[in-house]
């Protein structure tokens, strides 16, 4: 399982390195979204709103949806699905590998977006750095959930429109927990509840993915 996971993660990251979709499409989308958030807040609030952590996670949520579509789209290109299916890879390993690759991609994107948040939304640098561990865990949980939901909608009619309907409710608690913990890092306050939610979600989705990803592959 671990060997397959590393093989698949390496393959996904290699594809990303070759195609540069993350660099030329996803990152610009994320940064643009951040700018739009500032515009939506209005000139009086842009740059000093306490909504900055929530806006960061909202942007990352949409970025994650793009990346999930990309991750599954790569597997379902014409001919790819069948030629890979006959390799008979351990589905638990495939799930872990795709989750790992998506997590790395989200961390890279998140690092740029959080830097953008410091710059444009004026989140305090020290507080933002203190929030990085919680951001990493939240994005990991989103990657695990996203890999499962991506597989759930892959290969059926209208996956691009169905994916957000299924995934966003699952992301909502992670968005809240992430926002709360980011805000706590910036302004102080209790953190442990939000860590529990993020860790429970991360472990839960990993466990369900390891057990049930194969069921989705066979569908």
């Amino acid at each position: 399982m671990i060997r397959t996971a590393l093989l698949v993660a390496r393959k996904d990251l290699l594809i990303e390195a070759r195609s540069r979709v993350l660099l030329w499409q996803v990152l610009p989308f994320g940064l643009l979204s951040l700018l739009l958030c500032g515009l939506a807040l209005g000139p009086a609030q842009a740059g000093k709103s306490s909504a900055a952590p929530g806006l960061f996670y909202l942007v990352m949520l949409f970025v994650t949806l793009l990346m999930i579509n990309r991750s599954q789209g790569v597997e379902h290109a014409a001919g790819t699905r069948e030629s890979v299916a006959v390799l008979g890879l351990d589905p638990a390993g495939v799930f872990l590998g795709k989750t790992l690759a998506l997590t790395v991609e989200l961390w890279l994107t998140g690092a740029v977006i959080v830097g953008g948040a410091v710059l444009t939304l004026h989140t305090a640098f020290a507080g933002t750095v203190a929030a990085l561990p919680s951001i990493a865990v939240a994005l990991g949980a989103m990657a695990a959930a996203g890999t499962m939901y991506g597989a759930l909608t892959a290969g059926i009619d209208g996956p691009a429109t169905l994916l957000p309907v299924l995934t966003l409710p699952a992301f909502a608690p992670l968005l809240v927990a992430g926002e709360r913990s980011f805000s706590s890092a910036l302004h102080g306050g209790a953190l442990w509840e939000w860590w529990v939610i993020m860790l429970v979600a991360l472990v839960g989705y990993l466990a369900i993915g390891v057990l049930l990803y194969g069921v989705l592959e066979d569908s």
């Binding site: 759930l152 059926i156 009619d157 309907v165 299924l166 699952a170 989705l216 569908s219």
Partner: peptide, 26 residues
């Protein structure tokens, strides 16, 4: 929506069942 998007009964049942488990996590 997931039930309606899937035409094949067996695939539909599996995907729905997995989604049912995922919802329980929430």
């Amino acid at each position: 929506a997931l039930r309606r998007a899937n035409g094949d009964p067996e695939a539909r049942a599996r995907r729905s069942a997995v989604f049912g488990i995922l919802i329980a996590l929430d």
